[in-house]
Amino acid sequence: MFSHIRTIWLTFLHLFKRHVTIQYPEEKIRLRPRWRGRIVLTKDPDGGERCVGCYLCAVACPVDCIALQATEDENGRRYPEFFRINFSRCIFCGYCEDACPTYAIQLIPDFEMGEYNRQNLVFEKEDLLINSQGKYPGYNFYKVAGMDAGVKQKGEGENEDAPVDVHSLMP
């Protein structure tokens, strides 16, 4: 009986507490930089696409919402021919970001993706690609990769030794 009265009193005291409600469209909540929202494809500092079409994101995706087709340009640089994410399926788990070897696919703090037409939630590559380096500024995959894809010559990358002439290797 006493506990009931205590409950009533404690509930009454909540009248004088702060509300936890955030009036959403007017007030916005502060999202952290690593908040997992809309998925984007980022670019290198020199403006080239980071994505190399390795399919690891599509494999990692638990709901199979990523579809892409890799291709190569004349320099041998790989890039996706199309890159499609179905956001009506996406669960924003961030596994694709973890799986990506080139930091190309990233989740950004934006969740306002409401659509009246479900078909509009299928984002193509031009919708996904942003003109920014995302969370890893200055990172350029082809600068650290060993291969020559038109960005730099072999052996000219960061922390990279000059190529060894195998024919001159004598015991």
Binding site: F12, H14, L15, H19, V20, T21, Q23
Partner: peptide, 10 residues
């Protein structure tokens, strides 16, 4: 709403 730290219809 007040007693549940919400705002209620406003």
């Amino acid at each position: 709403a007040m007693w549940q730290d919400r705002l209620g219809p406003n």
